[in-house]
C-alpha cells in the first residue's frame, strides 16, 4: 500500500537548500505550520522538523501514498507529486498533525 509510486519523487536530507518552487511546512509543538496547501505538480514540499521530538510524515491516500520515515529534530525531508490530486498527510506518531495537500496545474 505504501510502496513509493512512480509518479512520486522522494528525497530525504538534513540540509536542504530551498529553491523557488519549494514550499516549506514546519513541524513545531506537534503541529504542522499549515493545515492546507496548494502546490503545482513537480514542486517540492519540504517538511522541516522544528520540534523537540521525532516525527514521521506519511500518507495513505490511494495512488499518492508515501512514508518519509522518522525525522529527527532539526531534520528536513521533501517530496513532490507529478500528478494532480488531493493528498491527506499526517504524522504517524502524533495523529492530530494533519495536512491536506492539493496538487493542481
Amino acid at each position: 500500500m505504501l510502496r513509493t509510486i512512480l509518479s512520486t519523487l522522494l528525497l530525504t536530507t538534513t540540509a536542504m537548500p530551498m529553491i523557488a518552487a519549494d514550499h516549506e511546512i514546519s513541524q513545531a509543538n506537534k503541529a504542522f505550520s499549515k493545515s492546507e496547501i496548494t502546490i503545482r505538480p513537480g514542486e517540492r514540499l519540504i517538511f522541516k522538523n522544528d520540534d523537540e521530538v521525532t516525527h514521521n510524515v506519511y500518507s495513505v491516500t490511494p495512488g499518492m501514498a508515501f512514508d518519509l520515515q522518522r525525522q529527527a529534530p532539526g531534520a528536513s525531508s521533501s517530496i513532490s507529486f507529478n500528478k494532480e490530486g488531493t493528498i491527506a498527510v499526517q504524522c504517524s506518531i502524533h495523529t492530530k498533525m494533519k495536512l491536506i495537500v492539493h496538487v493542481q496545474k
Partner: peptide, 14 residues
C-alpha cells in the same frame, strides 16, 4: 500494535 493498522516501519510494535 499500531503496525497492524498502519503498516509503516515506525509503527511496528508501537
Amino acid at each position: 500494535g499500531r503496525g497492524v493498522r498502519l503498516p509503516l516501519a515506525a509503527m511496528q510494535f508501537a
